[in-house]
């Protein structure tokens, strides 16, 4: 058959509506899941150092289980599993006036739950990276531990979180494709459907790969801008990472990536 340049070019420049819809869904799934994941991660990281034992046990158990099981399995358990058991069948719901289909809810919840476990570890490492003297100085002024955490420790920890957070979101954009297994019609599943009608597998998935790389590259540029802005405020607490390092690896990003284990 050979590589069909015309087919490839046409698909790349004039994608079917299903591709565009799928790509948009990929982006908004990733954004919402990442935001929720950061929130879950922060709560878990704080619970892990809470004085109350049950909270510590819950947080540790959560991280242990989620990081110990594949996202693919988690997605099937959340969506098909809960529906099959009759526990919860993910009806379509209006959230802030927007209709969210059940399967999208399941997808976001799965990704957020999964991401929360990884973010918790990143947050914990970031909080631990803040010198103990900072919290001591805060409480010596009469601040409560909570206030010291919120106003002194967390603002410093967040700067350390930004580089690995960027990594996480890059990853998030790509792992949304796993949700195709529960039938969520994001970019990857849209491509599969298209493929089953055209059988131009190489060309189709090359286009899909290019779409993903466009999304992650745009994110890299955004992240560089965020870090530049944070660095310009209050001195560089985090190492500057150039866009070249961000795209092609090496340097400070490699060091930041060591905060998180391989998925």
């Amino acid at each position: 058959m050979g590589f069909d340049w015309h087919f490839f070019e046409h698909l790349l420049l004039y994608p079917p509506n299903s591709f565009i819809q799928g790509a948009l869904r990929t982006v908004y799934l990733a954004v919402i899941a990442q935001i929720l994941g950061v929130g879950i991660g922060l709560i878990l990281a704080l619970w892990r150092r809470n004085a109350r034992l049950p909270l510590r046990i819950f947080a540790s158990g959560y991280i242990w289980i989620i990081r110990g099981t594949p996202l693919l399995v988690q997605a099937v358990i959340v969506y098909d599993g809960l529906t099959g058991l009759g526990v919860y069948s993910f009806p379509d719901q209006h959230v802030f006036g927007v209709l969210i289909p059940g399967i999208i809810q399941a997808g976001i919840i799965t990704l957020a739950i999964n991401e929360g476990a990884y973010m918790a570890e990143i947050m914990r490492a970031a909080i631990d990276s803040v010198d103990r003297g900072q919290a001591e100085a805060a409480v010596s002024l009469g601040m409560r531990r909570r206030q010291a955490m919120r106003h002194v420790v967390l603002p410093q920890a967040m700067r350390v979180v930004i580089p690995p957070l960027g990594n996480e979101f890059n990853n998030m954009l790509k792992v949304t494709s796993l949700l195709s297994v529960i039938g969520l019609n994001e970019l990857f599943l849209a491509a599969q459907d298209y493929n089953s009608a055209n059988f131009r597998t190489f060309e189709i998935f090359l286009v899909v790969a290019i779409y993903y790389i466009i999304m992650t590259t745009v994110w890299s540029i955004i992240q560089s801008a965020i870090e530049r802005r944070m660095a310009s405020r209050g001195g560089d607490l985090i190492d500057r990472i150039t866009l070249r390092e961000r795209l092609f690896g090496g340097g400070a990003l490699a060091a930041a990536g060591q905060l998180r284990g391989a998925r």
Partner: peptide, 29 residues
């Protein structure tokens, strides 16, 4: 915390808050 308000502590390593300006450091508590 209430008792500590009465007691100022100056550390060997200063422990200033690096994300705040000098004035903000003083004004935070």
């Amino acid at each position: 915390a209430r008792q500590r308000e009465q007691i100022g502590f100056v550390f060997q390593q200063f422990n200033l808050f690096p994300h705040l300006t000098a004035a903000e450091n003083v004004a935070l508590a």
